[in-house]
């Protein structure tokens, strides 16, 4: 189980310090696919960086901690301070753009051998890489190629092969399919789900695409303006969302046969530079009251395993009015 304890992550800029993730607490059970959704700038990617342990100037972990629920070789529990030693062994990462994430001038085979303190017989590892790549539906020779010789879908498969080669406990995927066309997107997502089922690892997936979340994820986290606003089983969230923001997000999805124009959510998220008071969604929320504008809602478990940060999460008004 991955446990995030009140994580506050801030960026140091010339204008001052800004909290891009502001007090997120979560428990992610082992062996599930968790989706993170939210608008650009809501802190999804920063949260991913914190979970991956890629914390360096200008990003800093201002307070809180991440526990990964496993120990390193010397028996010490792994936290965000020492996770870096486990990169690509127990936690790995699938980047967004496979074209620019592979070194264009060296063969893929060599990039497979670039992991940290790679020991053991190179030829033997390459044999393993070859058979693994074959299992993922790529020709064996593809590891002898240069990146420009492969198609976008093949390259993304290579990235997934790299990320899963050591069977890590945790895989982070930051919009792994955004750069691909929908047909390839589907096959890549199916591959990820397949591998997850075989290895039983935890996948944390960031995507803008609510459709992807609906099809792929077991659990979902909705973020808004650096805060977690809702977290729970994906099915629950899509069927019976607690937070008005989630509800509006889901309502903006098109459905087949329904050709009414979709409404977006009017307004924009607040600037994190401003002094924020009350619920951060209050300005755009159709249900907002004076209480929302002045008092910040707590992130509470309303139903078993289903959390939300809204004063009216369980009120009838919320359930009926915004639909």
């Amino acid at each position: 189980m991955i446990r995030l304890n009140n994580v506050v992550a801030s960026y140091k800029t010339e204008r001052g310090v800004v909290n891009a993730v502001d007090g997120v607490s979560l428990e992610i059970p082992d062996g599930c696919i968790v989706g993170i959704a939210g608008e650009s700038g809501c802190g999804k990617s920063t949260l991913m960086k914190v979970i991956y342990g890629d914390i360096g100037f200008p990003l800093a972990l201002a307070s809180g901690s991440v526990d990964y629920g496993f120990s390193d070789d010397s028996g010490k529990p792994v936290t965000s301070r020492n996770i870096q030693k486990e990169w690509f062994k127990r936690i790995s990462y699938v980047p967004q753009s496979s074209m620019s994430s592979l070194n264009p001038v060296i063969r893929i085979r060599k990039q497979f051998l670039d992991f940290q303190d790679q020991t053991g017989n190179k030829a033997q590892i390459l044999e393993q890489v070859k058979s693994y790549v074959k299992k993922l539906g790529l020709p064996e020779e593809s590891i002898d190629s240069y990146p420009h010789q492969l198609s976008g879908g093949m390259r993304q498969r290579i990235m997934i092969a790299m990320a899963t080669f050591f069977q890590p406990e945790i895989i982070l995927a930051d919009e792994p399919t955004t750069a691909l066309d929908v047909v390839v997107q589907k096959s890549i997502l199916l591959l990820l789900m397949d591998l997850q089922e075989q290895m039983g690892n935890t996948i944390i997936l960031v995507s803008h695409d609510m459709g992807v979340h609906y099809q792929v994820t077991d659990k979902m986290l909705i973020m808004y303006a650096a805060k977690a606003v809702e977290y729970g089983d994906s099915e629950e969230i899509f069927q019976r969302p607690l937070h008005p923001y989630t509800r509006l997000l889901i309502n903006s999805l098109p459905t087949i046969g329904d050709d009414r124009a979709r409404e977006g959510i009017p307004g924009r998220p607040p600037s994190l530079w401003n002094k924020l008071q009350g619920c951060r969604f209050a300005d755009r929320c159709p249900l907002a009251t004076d209480r929302c504008r002045n008092e910040e809602p707590e992130f509470v478990e309303y139903r078993p395993g289903h959390f939300a940060a809204c004063h009216y999460a369980d009120s009838e008004a919320n359930l009926s009015e915004v639909s």
Partner: peptide, 25 residues
């Protein structure tokens, strides 16, 4: 470049990143 960042996140050593990734390109 993203491929150098990715190599860092892969845990590739500083020396390899400087020679094989940055210098070669």
């Amino acid at each position: 470049e993203p491929y150098v960042t990715y190599a860092r996140l892969k845990g590739t050593s500083n020396w390899k990143r400087m020679t094989r990734y940055v210098f070669r390109n």
